[in-house]
Amino acid sequence: MALVYFSVGGNLYQNSPVKYDFIQDDVVEYSRPVMIKLNNNVGQYVRLQLYFDAKWIMISEVQFISGRQPKI
């Protein structure tokens, strides 16, 4: 599971984080990409809390993709 919190100034974070539940795979132990949609939240600071069911967790890269939203 992952909880993602956002903050504008870095001192106070929002009370309701983006929650992501990952389906556990007991068959294949290979690494895989995990993409979490941030639901258009805005923040200069991001706090990420990761919960995992193993002895180790490896994070190889973190990427944020953003852009201008089209005007409707």
Rank of each mutant, 00 (worst) to 15 (best):
E29T: 15
G43C: 07
V62E: 00
M1P: 02
N39G: 01
V18F: 00
R68C: 10
K19E: 12
K55D: 08
Y20N: 05
G43Q: 10
F52D: 02
Y30W: 14
V28D: 14
V42K: 13
Q44L: 06
I23A: 05
G67N: 13
L50K: 04
Y20V: 08
M1L: 07
V34T: 08
G10C: 05
K55S: 08
K55W: 05
G10E: 05
V27K: 15
M1G: 03
D26G: 09
G67H: 11
F64H: 09
E61F: 00
I36C: 02
Q69L: 12
R47G: 02
M1H: 05
Q14N: 14
R32S: 05
Y30I: 12
E29L: 13
S31M: 09
Y45Q: 09
Y5V: 10
I65L: 06
V27T: 15
D25Y: 07
D21I: 09
I72Q: 14
Q44P: 01
R32F: 02
S66T: 09
K19W: 05
D26V: 15
Q14S: 10
I65Y: 01
I59Q: 00
N15L: 13
Q14L: 09
R47V: 03
V34L: 04
V4A: 02
S60W: 00
N40V: 06
E29R: 13
P17N: 10
G67D: 11
K55F: 05
Y30L: 14
I23R: 09
I59N: 01
D26C: 11
V8H: 15
N40A: 10
Y13L: 12
S31L: 06
N11M: 08
D21H: 02
Y45K: 11
